[in-house]
Amino acid sequence: MDMQNTIGYPARDAEVVELVDVVKTYPDGAGVRALDGVSVAFGRGTFSAVMGPSGSGKSTLLHCAAGLDRPDSGRVMLAGREIGTLREPALTKERRRRVGFVFQSYNLLDALSVWHNVLLPQRLAGVRPDQRWAREVIARVGLKGRENDRPGQLSGGQKQRVALARALAARPEVIFADEPTGALDLASGREVLGLLREVVDSLGTAVVMVTHDPAAAAWADRVVFLADGRMVDELADPTAEKVAERMMAVSAR
């Protein structure tokens, strides 16, 4: 297989997310391919970081993998089911069943309490929330006793913990995290990364995280690198120093 285009599949567990020859072009007049024939898979119970220079296709990969955006061609498999061709609302239903999201901007509703923010996606999906599990995940992220607080009463790190609890409340098979520590101070960022690591190790949930930070990527099991919309390298058992070296090499391509 061509390393310019394909990264080897993780051997630890069965794939929960798989992209096969995915192409995505945005009609901005330039005709540049955000993803150019990308094939990559992410296993159950693994923590993967996605890195690359600005404009390399990181967020587009995340959006296509999560079913937030549709590829022009290629296949996107979620838990063994191809989702790239699903119509709405079937795609929305599949995404809500299997996927959780954590974004840099938290995406919390200021008018709602922690408790109601955590339960909101399930209620919007018409699913009866598992309140016992919701209480457990709120406790797991260190917010027990803060259920009635509103986002304005929380620090940035605490808001991101709410976002993680919200993602976990539906028992997803994979969590997609887009720069989850980008708006946090160093200590809060480490706490959130530790929680993501715990989600993988204790719950078996897959985590796929886009980041620009080598120190954040070092929490992952492996790092995959993009450049110009193509997979160009990967690193197992990363350290911050090794990730930084690889990023320099990728950026110099």
Rank of each mutant, 00 (worst) to 15 (best):
219 W>V: 01
89 P>M: 03
231 M>W: 11
151 P>D: 01
175 I>H: 05
166 R>A: 07
159 K>V: 06
104 Q>N: 13
162 V>N: 04
29 G>E: 09
2 D>P: 15
95 R>F: 09
253 R>A: 08
110 D>C: 07
12 R>L: 07
154 L>V: 02
250 V>G: 05
122 Q>F: 01
32 V>T: 15
191 E>N: 02
237 D>Y: 12
155 S>V: 01
177 A>V: 05
163 A>Y: 09
109 L>P: 13
102 V>D: 00
88 E>I: 05
117 N>S: 02
179 E>D: 05
141 V>Y: 08
198 E>P: 12
32 V>G: 11
117 N>M: 04
26 Y>F: 15
244 A>L: 15
63 H>Y: 15
211 T>W: 01
105 S>I: 01
246 R>M: 09
91 L>R: 12
211 T>H: 03
17 V>Q: 02
50 V>M: 04
142 G>E: 05
252 A>F: 07
189 G>R: 00
62 L>K: 06
44 R>S: 03
49 A>F: 14
230 R>Q: 08
161 R>T: 02
47 F>S: 00
4 Q>W: 10
62 L>Y: 00
43 G>L: 12
75 R>G: 09
173 E>C: 05
244 A>E: 15
129 P>W: 00
139 A>E: 13
35 L>Y: 05
70 R>H: 06
45 G>K: 14
53 P>F: 03
35 L>H: 10
31 G>P: 10
39 S>I: 12
59 S>W: 08
78 L>A: 11
10 P>L: 00
136 E>M: 10
232 V>A: 07
137 V>T: 04
94 E>K: 14
200 V>Q: 06
200 V>M: 02
188 S>P: 10
35 L>T: 06
83 I>P: 13
81 R>A: 11
116 H>N: 14
96 R>I: 10
226 L>R: 09
72 D>S: 05
207 V>K: 03
246 R>A: 02
24 K>G: 13
104 Q>A: 08
128 R>C: 01
105 S>A: 13
137 V>S: 06
243 V>Y: 14
15 E>K: 12
252 A>N: 11
52 G>F: 01
99 V>D: 05
102 V>W: 01
195 L>I: 08
242 K>R: 12
75 R>L: 07
54 S>L: 09
169 A>D: 06
250 V>P: 13
9 Y>V: 14
58 K>W: 13
170 A>T: 07
120 L>R: 03
131 Q>R: 15
140 R>H: 03
39 S>T: 15
153 Q>G: 02
57 G>H: 14
62 L>G: 00
62 L>V: 12
92 T>W: 04
191 E>H: 09
